[in-house]
Design a binder for these strands. Structure first.
Lengths: 169, 169
DNA sequence: GCTTGCGTTCGAGCGCGCTCAAACTCCTAG
DNA sequence: CTAGGAGTTTGAGCGCGCTCGAACGCAAGC
């Protein structure tokens, strides 16, 4: 999955984020750069864990419009950064570029598209939930196999159910 | 993510799977076709939610060896199916084909590669855990935006924290 | 005997999401 | 004055994981 790419990049930056899912965390997701100075492309790239190349690409395909400063360099204002944070979140959870393009098009069309946007979000929420299920199953399978190999999983139910039946083949 | 592809296929089949993560569930993951008759390619494809094309492709790249019956048709025995179930689980959780190829090569090399296999699994377990974190964040962001749009999320903390600050832009 | 269906092999093609190279502009520091 | 560094545009290229088409084989049913 190309999502995988994005994901793996984002994951490295995630290691220290732990603790409870709180409103505060959600705000970190949504309110980056709240009423702050415009940012350069590399600053935004660093913030989002992506390359300037990718940011230009997102602009090219119409996901964001970005202003220029006096030198012709891109200047990302707070709103644009917020949108990019949102888009990155959606990408990370597997929403296709195609769908994101559709979504921002709806946004540009105005308030009467809110219901359709809502539908997209609801559907995507379900997709994420299913992904969570799948991943949880994969995690269980992985830990199961780790257990059959006799490894310390570091998980709660560590040494449970090793009845030696040749892990692989 | 190409993983996305596989995932989305698998997800549709997942809708009815609910309830607690139990040993029973894990066994469903690992012990499909326990000591049963060999299966045809389409049977296995249906079981795994993938196409016969993809199964042939997996064989081509060396992930499995598959015997033939009297007609030259592929015949998947229980061990092979088990391996495919495992491989599919790993793919679904984002392990690269390259890594899976390496893994099965290690399996073929024998018992002395168990430590390296274990390392791979431990690392992959961590990857899955990070993905779960990421997805959880994305889910929160999605639900937050749904809330700002005034939609019923169907989630516990539905109408919490709508302070109207234009969802998008 | 001929069609239908399910399988085979082989190589090529494709969609996605980036990723990069080349040639260029502009500003700043030494 | 020159060199370095950060940015720009455009179009092309790439890696991944399938996915497909074409030509063929074999068996069962009408």
């Amino acid at each position: 999955m190309a999502t995988d790419d994005l994901m793996s990049r984002a994951l490295s930056a995630l290691d220290e984020v732990d603790g409870p899912m709180s409103v505060e965390v959600i705000h970190r997701l949504v309110d980056v750069g709240d009423a702050t100075e415009p940012m350069t492309i590399t600053e935004v790239a660093d913030l989002l864990g992506m390359s300037p190349h990718t940011l230009r690409y997102y602009e090219r395909v119409g996901l964001v419009e970005v202003g220029r400063d006096a030198f012709g360099h891109r200047s990302y204002d707070a709103d644009t950064v917020r949108r990019l944070v949102f888009l990155t979140r959606m990408r990370l959870s597997g929403m296709a570029m195609r769908d994101l393009q559709h979504y921002v098009q709806l946004v540009d069309e105005g308030e009467e598209t809110v219901p359709e946007r809502l539908d997209m979000l609801l559907e995507h929420r379900d997709t994420i939930r299913r992904q969570l299920k799948e991943l949880t199953l994969s995690l269980a399978a992985t830990e199961y196999k780790i257990a059959t190999y006799g490894g310390r999983t570091g998980s709660p139910q560590d040494r449970a159910g090793q009845h030696e039946q040749e892990p692989d083949r």
